[in-house]
Design a protein around this nucleic acid. Structure first.
Lengths: 246, 246
DNA sequence: AATTTTCATTTGTCATACAATTAAAAGTCT
DNA sequence: AGACTTTTAATTGTATGACAAATGAAAATT
């Protein structure tokens, strides 16, 4: 692992982080392996300990290493967990959508397309637990006086159960970002009692079709749900437009 | 933004990073807004400048801020680009798969399921450019003496073109991880001339069906490709098993 | 043999200093 | 007055040294 101290395009700590990251991704450093101590690294790279520390903090932020204090402590290559990966994906996806002004349509299309991809597997593999979770969320959604925030949270929980029913952790991980990152966009919509009723109807259908292992029908219903959600968004945008003009 | 100096569960720099990150994600800090200088932050949080710097490097590693030297420089909230988001997703996905010993089947299933989700949109929206890229990669794949590495790289390029044809940047971003993270797993497979021929045949079909805007057929062919890829992986695993026993 | 103490190692935090960079402000020349 | 150059102040990047806190191994003690 080498760095170029005269490269003006990036900081030393960024270069060091990259060198170590590359070694991890390429498999040269394996899980639970200990990196040299901060002093040793500063000798090897010929930089100060502060610079090494900044590099290590960069890696820690990406869940690539964990550190432990004390004798026989140090920085260890970390086995990244699904939970951490979810978290990172959600943060990145959320910011990507909010900062780049991704249109509701584009985000909605991506989300429901990927959810539809889960349907065949979910229909095949769903357990009683998954169905119970979905029905419990539907029940919650039907409560009168539920705040928009709680409604959206329950909506996310329902869809996560659908995705998890496919029992493919990689898919669950990939979709976590899609579903959760939509929440801020969904929050812009005001869900009237009538809107909610329609959505609950579609949710119920999805649960029933999953129960009957009818994948195709689940997909059809997801398309309807996607279309209906888009319609609601259009109405919100139209109303805002009118308000601006009036 | 407040931190708890006596919280033994996490470092001060991690707490500070979290406080700022939360402010960014929740929209309290907007794109291109300047954070206080390192000295000001160290005053506000009542920690040393080094600790603040470590926190800022954590945020920089997640592409949440960029820094600029000199007068009127500082740390600015960064608009995360699709490219950076791709990069992060690929790093995380790759490590998630390699470190958690995700089976080839699970990864393959997730990847092709999500690719299939793109098919309807790709068939509708593909341009001449997308088709040209796909056919160019097919041509490259047919070259005799192509190394396994180059073959896999071309395979990735082909599938990226397919995903990009859907013209939904959010989907492209989500799928980048799926497709690229599979590469190390794919590299374990030795692609014989005969294997390649079969795959090229399926790739050609996909390109043709896309050309004809026949979404259903694209999906069918993707299923065949998925099944064939799984078969190849089984053979590799079986061969290794035999080697171990013999 | 079990418990306690000591000790060396390592990360976490702080303080200070200086280099490098940068844009604004001030100064200079035509 | 306007274009160009120099100065200046602010800010991040890097280095150094110091000490606190944690921690597991080794030594000492009971």
């Amino acid at each position: 692992m080498k760095i170029n101290p005269n490269d003006a395009t990036s900081d030393l700590s960024a270069q060091i982080a990259k060198a170590i990251r590359d070694a991890i991704v390429s498999g040269q450093l394996i899980v639970d392996e200990r990196l040299p101590s901060e002093s040793e690294l500063s000798d090897q790279f010929e930089v100060s300990r502060s610079t090494v520390r900044e590099a290590l903090k960069r890696l820690a932020a990406q869940s690539l290493i964990r550190t432990q204090r004390g004798a026989f402590g140090g920085a260890f290559i970390k086995r990244i967990s699904y939970e951490e990966a979810y978290g990172q994906q959600i943060t990145t996806s959320t910011l990507l959508l909010s900062m780049n002004a991704v249109s509701f349509d584009v985000a909605c299309e991506a989300r429901f397309a990927m959810e539809r991809a889960c349907a065949p597997f979910a229909a095949q593999r769903r357990t009683a637990d998954h169905l119970a979770t979905m029905r419990a969320e539907i029940y919650r959604q039907a409560q009168p006086g539920l705040s928009d925030e709680s409604w959206c949270a329950s909506d996310v929980a329902f869809h996560r159960a659908l995705v998890d029913a496919a029992q493919n952790p990689v898919m669950s991980y990939q979709l976590a970002g899609s579903v959760e990152a939509m929440q801020p966009l969904m929050n812009m919509i005001t869900f009237t009692a009538r809107n909610r009723e329609t959505i609950i109807g579609l949710h119920t259908k999805i649960a029933n079709h999953l129960d009957n292992k009818e994948a195709e029908r689940v997909e059809e219903t997801l398309v309807k749900l996607s279309d209906y959600t888009k319609t609601l968004a259009y109405d919100v945008i139209a109303a805002k437009q009118k308000q601006r003009e009036g």
